[in-house]
Design a protein around this nucleic acid. Structure first.
Lengths: 108, 108
DNA sequence: CACAGTATCTTGCATTGCAAGGTACTTACT
DNA sequence: AGTAAGTACCTTGCAATGCAAGATACTGTG
């Protein structure tokens, strides 16, 4: 898997999963890994960035076996960001697909 | 436009355009710019990288008004790479779309 | 008691796109 | 002649982000 493809995309993936339900970091890795390889060394810095930017808040919760989990919840600003980035990704992917299919005339 | 989205993608875009016809650098910028913003500071290092990796060869050609143009032509290895990267992009984009649509069960 | 699993985190590296700048040629306008 | 705009090539240094590798610490199993 081309690592470069993921740049910036993992952020919207995290926001999108969090839009459905609150998650803790480790859980996000396993959720996203069903579709796209992602490592822990990626997710934690990313989550801290999202918190710094005010897109998520956190709360701790005990877990049955293992250390407590730090859950992440989208803020209003985070929901707005999720929506905007999703649209931007859709537009971008459509542009790339058009280019790869040789539809090089932007008018169509 | 999120700059990060482009990481790695511009390479397959260049390969894809070159798969249709030989181009010079400046022409590639204008072709790709119809769909995706790209600057000259990006394309020239990228083209040199592609040449180093053996995916393209170059030849010079006079131009009517202005300096001579350096055309880039895909090699056999370049065509193979174009094909593989295109498939990888398609798979990747499909995975991201599935994630963003909340189809979090990888089985489907 | 050692190991695997859960769960958090940090450091340093690699890659790549861009802004900004430089060079040089041709054409058009003043 | 001089200046600007368009064409066409290039380089340097910076910013962003994903990852490998490692550290920490708790629980349950063999």
């Amino acid at each position: 898997m081309n690592i470069q493809f993921k740049k910036g995309v993992l952020e919207i993936c995290v926001l999108s999963v969090l839009a459905h339900k609150d998650c803790y970091g480790y859980e996000l890795v396993s959720e996203i890994s069903k579709r796209i390889d992602i490592s822990e060394g990626t997710i934690y810095p990313l989550l801290h960035r999202l918190k710094d930017e005010g897109y998520v808040t956190t709360y701790l919760q005990e877990s049955a076996g293992g250390p407590p989990r730090k859950y992440y919840r989208l803020t209003e600003s985070g929901r707005k960001e999720e929506h905007e980035q999703k649209e931007e990704w859709m537009r971008f992917a459509a542009s790339v697909n058009a280019l790869l299919e040789g539809k090089n005339n932007a008018a169509e």
